[in-house]
Amino acid sequence: MVLREIRVKPAPFAYVRTETLDQVFDLLDEHGDDARILAGGQSLMATLNMRLSAPEVLVDINHLDGLSDISCDGETLKIGALARHSQVLESADVQTYAPLIAKTMPHVAHQAIRNRGTFGGSVAFADPAAELPAVTRTLGARFVLQGRNGQRTVAADDFFQGLFETDLKENELLVGAEIPVIKDGERTAFMELARRHGDYAMVGIAVQGRLEGDSFADMRVGFFGAGDQPILAKSASAALNGQPNNEDTIKKAQESLNADLDPMPDLNGPAEMKMHLARVLTKRALAELAS
């Protein structure tokens, strides 16, 4: 058939649907850099289609057992790496115990992508413009990394190390996230500026913290699309803590973003425009948090 010959997008690769972790580690050991883990594939497939990436072997982990569960023991919300975005969006546990994530999910891509994309995939890919890496960092999440001989747990703050760079080793698999449950009195806000709903934001903000009387406390302000990695804005958070919720405090938090953010210019505009948008979002998000 003539049509059949037209069908070429990704460079050729072998594909293995794995059923066990041992199988995954065997393939990672054997092929090293030439193997790529295929989870939801909603970023990887696009890079394959554009030939920005050309692995020799795709290791499909979608059929590994026990990695899709969402559960909570009252202190920690556990989200399995293979939980789909649509599953997280509809989870009652996520609504109750991590409302910041619940507010985030409707902004993560579109339904057809949310039906495939996974929580762990988004975290492991560590796109600085994506919502979930920044939101998990804001929440002080910990990630469970599985190696052949055991697991280790890494705080989000140490996990994200640079542009698409994480602490994940070549022969490790991210299997889950552990998120501290929201405490009494903690409030949340999430906002992003995107040209089209669901697309990558130009800049986005995620905030969690408390108001003690009229003053901010335990504030954690996170940003995405504002640097070479998902950002926890430590200076801005410090500028808010213990200070009254007024114009002067907000202005100081906005000014301290210069120390926290280092946005890259892109098709949307120059770095200074993104800094401006980050300041605007800071004011809006804090107003929402306090309302």
Binding site: G41, M45, L58, N62, I113, N115, R116
Partner: peptide, 14 residues
Amino acid sequence: EIVRGCLMLAAQAE
């Protein structure tokens, strides 16, 4: 469930 046909391999629909 709806998916992007370009972001899924046919092999994954096994």
